[in-house]
């Protein structure tokens, strides 16, 4: 009990860095191997277990892979994947624009912010799927009810983070701009909004994962195409391997979209990262 988990962590940090180039390479390789051990073992385990278990719910992974190639490369892409993604991006784009515009207005005006506070608090606490029946009444079962739900569900994190970002702008950044007679419009677009982007992106990232969830749910409740519809229909007709391919596809989509977002964020906010790195040092 003398060697604690915390102890090893601290020990790892103080261990002297490897001297020579070969040793450094060796270290990097070891690290990579370490990170890949668990995923590889896990995948192999799943492959082996599903292959010999003969479970109805967990068909062999090889079979799922075969079905996946059949279905999604690229037969159903046009019929299910594209409609799903299209609706998601439409709703998300609306949420980004509306959230940023309203958030900026509320962030700048204390009066508006206070007056809107109870309504915003209520609407953002309302679980968006509860509004799906409402959206169905409003827009019918077509694309727009789904776009509406996705926009309505994802707008709140963007809105609230924009408000915080706009309010949190360093007053001196604005004083400097005022002292150089930068007009109010340019102060907003060139100073306030750029300074708020780190917060706005944090909100957009939360919203992205909500958008994927709502895309799937809205297709599960009422739709005749889309990945969510496909997965639920497969389950209802006990087409288990097909259902699994849909689940895997949604997982991959979630991962890829998140990754794309992180890459874009790193590009747009490179200065923020640099700034933070500097103040840490």
């Amino acid at each position: 009990m003398t060697r604690t988990a915390i102890g090893t962590a601290a020990g790892g940090r103080t261990r002297p860095a490897a001297g020579g180039g070969t040793r450094r390479w060796g270290r990097a390789l070891r690290l990579l191997a370490l990170q890949l051990v668990v995923p590889v073992v896990l995948l192999a385990g799943i492959w082996w277990w599903t292959g010999q278990a003969g479970s109805f719910y967990f068909p062999p992974a090889s079979e799922v892979a075969r079905y996946f190639a059949d279905l999604w490369l690229f037969e159903r892409v046009g019929g299910d994947v594209l409609p799903s993604l299209g609706r998601m991006f439409a709703g998300y784009a609306i949420a980004v624009v509306v959230g940023m515009v309203l958030g900026t207005a509320l962030g700048l005006s204390r009066l508006l912010r206070t007056a809107a506070d109870p309504v915003v608090q209520f609407l953002r606490a309302l679980p968006p799927p509860a509004l799906i029946p409402f959206a169905l009444l409003l827009f019918g079962a077509g694309d727009w009810s789904k776009v509406f739900i996705i926009a309505l569900g994802t707008v709140w994190p963007i809105l609230l983070n924009t408000i915080d970002g706009v309010r949190g702008v360093e007053s001196q950044l604005l004083d400097a701009a005022r002292s150089f007679q930068i007009p109010a419009g340019a102060r907003l677009t060139r100073i306030v909004l750029p300074a708020a982007t780190p917060r706005i992106f944090a909100g957009m990232r939360t919203s992205l994962s909500i958008a994927i969830i709502l895309m799937v749910v809205s297709e599960m409740v009422a739709s005749d195409n889309g990945i969510g519809y496909f997965v639920l229909e497969s389950q209802r007709s006990f087409a288990i391997p097909e259902m699994w391919t849909g689940i895997v596809l949604l997982g991959v989509l979630g991962f890829v979209l998140n990754w794309l977002f992180v890459v874009m964020e790193a590009r747009v906010l490179f200065w923020h990262r640099g700034l933070k790195g500097n103040s840490d040092a």
Partner: peptide, 14 residues
Amino acid sequence: AFVFQDYSRSLYPW
């Protein structure tokens, strides 16, 4: 023209 004490908060990091 005004020069502030805290340069890190008067220059625009972006």
